[in-house]
Amino acid sequence: MAGPIRVLVGKIGLDGHDRGVKVVARALRDAGMEVVYTGLHRTPAEVARIAVEEDVDVIGISLLSGAHMTIFPRLIELLKIEGADDALLLAGGTILPEDAEALVAMGVDKVFGVDTPLPELVEFIRANAKPQ
């Protein structure tokens, strides 16, 4: 039987809005998952490295700074190089529908808006993560 789902939640760039990411971290922990929070102001390279070191099944990145269209391509590229691109990749925050479509096209598995109910997020991860 597989162990608990391991999730990395993180913030990339200079954006300091951490209310959402911390609420999500807590909800996933309360749902029985193992949660690693990167803390604020990380670079894509740091997040890719932590994802490998922590051997996570899911990576969730929260962005409210509007910098998602520059940050995600870089992160996806680094995850590929590090061999961590099999993890489920999720985005959350203030992301317009057209940007969300573009993110999915480049390899993000799902984009969650700011008003997403927590049970919806938990269910999605349970249904789609593949713990080793």
């Binding site: 760039g13 200079l14 670079t43 700074s65 509007g66 910098a67 520059t70 940050i71």
Partner: peptide, 9 residues
């Protein structure tokens, strides 16, 4: 560290 965020918010 400013990459992608200049003149954004």
């Amino acid at each position: 560290r400013s990459f992608g965020e200049v003149g954004g918010v």
